[in-house]
Design a protein around this nucleic acid. Sequence first.
DNA 1: TATTGATGCGGGAACGTTCCCGCACAAGGG
DNA 2: CCCTTGTGCGGGAACGTTCCCGCATCAATA
Lengths: 372, 372
Amino acid sequence: MSEASEHGGAARGRTGPAPGHTYVPGRGGPPARPAPPAPRVRLVDVAREAGLSKTTVSAALNGTGRLSPEVREKARETARRMGYRPNATARQLRAGRARLIGYVVGELADTPWTFLESPYFARLTGATAATALARGYAVVLLPAGSLQSEWAALPLDAVVVADPVADDRIVEDLLAARIPVFSDRSVEGREGAHWVDVDAADAVGRTLDHFHAQGARGPVVVLPDSTTRFHREVTAAHRAWCAAHGVPERAVRVPEAGNGPVIRAVETALTGGPDRPDALFVVAEASPPLVLEAARRTGYHVPGDLLLACVSEDETAVHTAPPVTTLSLRPDAVAEAGVAHLVAVLEQGERETAGALVPVRLDVRASSVRSP
Amino acid sequence: MSEASEHGGAARGRTGPAPGHTYVPGRGGPPARPAPPAPRVRLVDVAREAGLSKTTVSAALNGTGRLSPEVREKARETARRMGYRPNATARQLRAGRARLIGYVVGELADTPWTFLESPYFARLTGATAATALARGYAVVLLPAGSLQSEWAALPLDAVVVADPVADDRIVEDLLAARIPVFSDRSVEGREGAHWVDVDAADAVGRTLDHFHAQGARGPVVVLPDSTTRFHREVTAAHRAWCAAHGVPERAVRVPEAGNGPVIRAVETALTGGPDRPDALFVVAEASPPLVLEAARRTGYHVPGDLLLACVSEDETAVHTAPPVTTLSLRPDAVAEAGVAHLVAVLEQGERETAGALVPVRLDVRASSVRSP
DNA sequence: TATTGATGCGGGAACGTTCCCGCACAAGGG
DNA sequence: CCCTTGTGCGGGAACGTTCCCGCATCAATA
């Protein structure tokens, strides 16, 4: 179970607490005011009190071993009465693993903690922690682009690296330290690295096909200019789609993340070209209401003369007028598949790294439907 | 340093790896295909290889003890060459603490992981993790309303409970388990509990005073209907402010969190009363662009005939037209003060729980400034 | 030359748990 | 009545580290 700063045995005499005294708060003796922090009850303390051995008590509490029902119950009752809680660290040492998973976001290494403010990463983080905990693993948050020294003191069984950038050091460092790494497809083929990913080409295809079906012939896309694998693949997929459909390739790149830069890029996309686009696909993450407002500000009516879709997990898209079509990258599904695979690797020692590709989901709303 | 699922000594023969062989990958012998996972290099392995004792190597690596420069360098060089990384769990056991802090959000216990999608909690979480890590503590994410069984296996030195609801079991459970708890002022006076908080009365006063100074005489507020201490105090402070300024008390309560309910409450606040308000203070968390849109939809011009301010950490407030005035609850400052206090408690064994009150910050923007 | 003191290193216990054994005892069969 | 088998419990090692000692060695001093 769980420790409260386990003050070691230095304070506690090797003899241990006198049976029946120490664990009863304030029994006997003068009412000592500052109350020296009572040492934690250990397995041996329970054993001594119950007149059993630590082996027996351990077996009784864990439901293992061959014990008579009476002895088992006696051990349990004594442990309960004394408020015994097993020392998690000692268990981990014995077990050889800590059931602890690191979680780090590769993107945005210069602003290490802003990733939580992105709805996508917020959902991914939450889903990762939830799934992991359901399988008995806890998740510790690490800063983007963190150094060895920051996780070196942690007994991590594995580390999840979300969206690593191309030249990310952290994956190398972790693999060198022989810590299993879970990430996106960019780590494919590396020894000790495993992956799940979303289908970037599918994401682009689904959205642009949808625009096309609605009659749009001049779609423009707003792409993030990052070295993330997803963003690179989206760029390539966009190029391929345009070539395949005989549509001119119109794209505006966003130099950095954040609502400000993306909104400016949207304005450029809508006003900068030679002719006005009839559809807009914003892949760079931005607040849907702000994108909608930017479209209006530049003289568009949505969906009247501009179809709009955003890659976003932001719930605000539902509440605008009109509601904004979004493409979900399925962080929940990615996390679930990833953790499931990770646990398999850790517990059954899976070597073959068969990654999984998660399909995206297009939530079509009024902003991308040409009214008849 | 960090573990990769430390497969115990059961696999490794008690003799340990033959010096100079095991740690060199694939040296000598046939090219074994499945490559049995090489056992981790331990301190004793380094000691044996270097012809020293584990005591000496330990002292050399930790920079302690009395050692000749030659021996120290030899130990370090050998450790480096063998790729030695200390076992974090063993260190924790010896040290008596794990430098691990739990983090749980009390609010929204029915939807355990959604808290990260709120900009306030996202920032609070990120800032907590960042500050803690800077002081050598890692943060593990726990679900809202989590049970004993979920954190019982973790060697937590302390747990941060953000915004506990009134009847929250978790604080009781943690204190009963003798794990130090850090939370808001609602835990004041409890043994083993410590707190930092924001000044709710100050938050209300600052905003309504600002409205008043801009000439507004009929402000309406949208309040969350939660049992969080902050929300209860805000309600009381609003009542007190209205009484003190001779202004009718106009408030709309939001039954549950989320953009949808808050937006509906905003509409009610703006249209439901006998006379139209001239200022709106949205304390319940919502996306500022959506609030602005709702005000327009109900026939208001901001700031022309309605001053607007939102309690929000959402960066989108800056990018609307007009930009929205926000009241920041300073999650970064709260986290910083909290972690600083927490570390003091853990490391110097501070008993007196002198909590800290963090001032809020009003970022006045065009939405709440009456143009001349 | 003996005594002191400092220096350099190693032996071994301890952190708290789990688990492999082995021992005592009872019951059953030849 | 002895040998086997099974049951119930305990002793002790092991997980990998840190740290308290103690034991040499050697220079400096009496």
